[in-house]
Design a protein around this nucleic acid. Structure first.
Lengths: 199, 199
DNA sequence: CTCTTAACGCAATGGGTTTGCGTTTATGGA
DNA sequence: TCCATAAACGCAAACCCATTGCGTTAAGAG
């Protein structure tokens, strides 16, 4: 039942797509998610509501599209020269971006207008790709590295669980403990004690 | 801005609450989530739509209420006489109930119509209480037990993450691996350190 | 340039949402 | 038991979002 069987890539269609997405981003910041309506978006974008309904189906699917686009990482993870530093920095940035009210709203929107789970799967893929880069870089350096799935289970999943279900129990020290737990065996004893004291 | 400042516990209010909740459960099974509307629920419950709007605000909040009520465990976890068996059985049952399309829909509804996060927090509390019972029982037997927070991070969070973001990567053997990794015996070196580090 | 058809705008219709107002009733106190 | 207060509800009108038929525009192909 997808509303976009073959989107024309250029000309008017492209301008409408960009104008509508921009209107959603602007209005989300101005009036918030609660007051947002399709006619409001259409008016800001300079199109009629029926155009939005025909291309996106409803407000939820439009918001899901915008949310996934917003959640896509724009750059590769920073390179700090060592796996623990890379992964800790990534986890802290992940929390910064996702645990804010705006970030939680984007995650919720991505989950909401997503009947087949493809948008949610895309979000998971983004995180996996970022971590895969970090792991591959560490392996290139000769460091012993954990499995990607292990990191997802031990770092990404607990963070996302707290973002969604326990938003008050989330901070940077928690991220450092998670990273330390999954890398602990490969760290020096001094580094382990340092992590424990910091956390 | 809460729609329920002080809900009257008895009499007509209680009857309306029960009738509306029952109507939602029936209509969810009959027409599905997509076709469900507030006037439809109100008609089935024998009340006017304005009553529903005034008490719950909108359809999402009503669905969130019903979902949390549905996700509440009705019994204590089964007692198999040992911590690994108890926790494995609980994790497998958790997956059974939550990973079905209906279960995922309930979780999604609980998250989405939940502006202040209290309903989502309640869901997390339910799981924590169940695990706490299992841990307390094991401690009573004299078994060495992990911290509650450790189990939530290592078992509950990965399962929930997959339910929401990667529903195809979830099965009973995965649950057994998660439980095995967090418990003693043949646990991994990483999870041994996790028990010491997180607390 | 011409043809085809996807994409868009316009306008009317339907129905979900919201709100003012009067009535009912749960709750606490005399 | 009776009364006072205010919450909860029903009714109905008004509002506006969602939906759809139809004519027009313009992107892409030959």
């Amino acid at each position: 039942m997808s509303r976009k069987p073959m989107v024309r890539p250029g000309g008017r269609s492209a301008r409408v797509q960009e104008a509508v997405h921009a209107a959603v981003r602007e209005l989300l910041a101005e009036v918030g998610r609660e007051r947002l309506t399709v006619p409001m978006v259409a008016s800001r974008a300079g199109v009629t509501p029926s155009t939005v309904y025909r291309r996106w189906g409803d407000l939820q699917e439009l918001l899901s599209d915008v949310a996934v686009e917003h959640l896509r990482p724009e750059t590769e993870p920073d390179d700090h020269g060592a796996l623990p530093a890379d992964m800790t920095a990534w986890a802290e940035q992940f929390i910064d971006e996702m645990s804010s009210p705006a970030g939680r709203a984007y995650i919720r929107d991505a989950l909401l207008g997503d009947p087949d789970g493809s948008n949610a799967g895309q979000c998971s893929t983004y995180a996996a790709e970022q971590i895969d880069v970090i792991i591959a870089r560490a392996a290139e350096r000769g460091e012993t590295v954990p499995e990607l799935e292990t990191v997802i289970d031990a770092v990404v999943a607990p963070i996302m669980y707290r973002i969604l279900f326990r938003p008050t129990e989330l901070d940077a020290p928690y991220a450092r403990r998670l990273v330390a737990s999954v890398l602990g065996g490969r760290q020096s004893a001094a580094s382990q004690r340092r992590q424990r004291l910091i956390g």
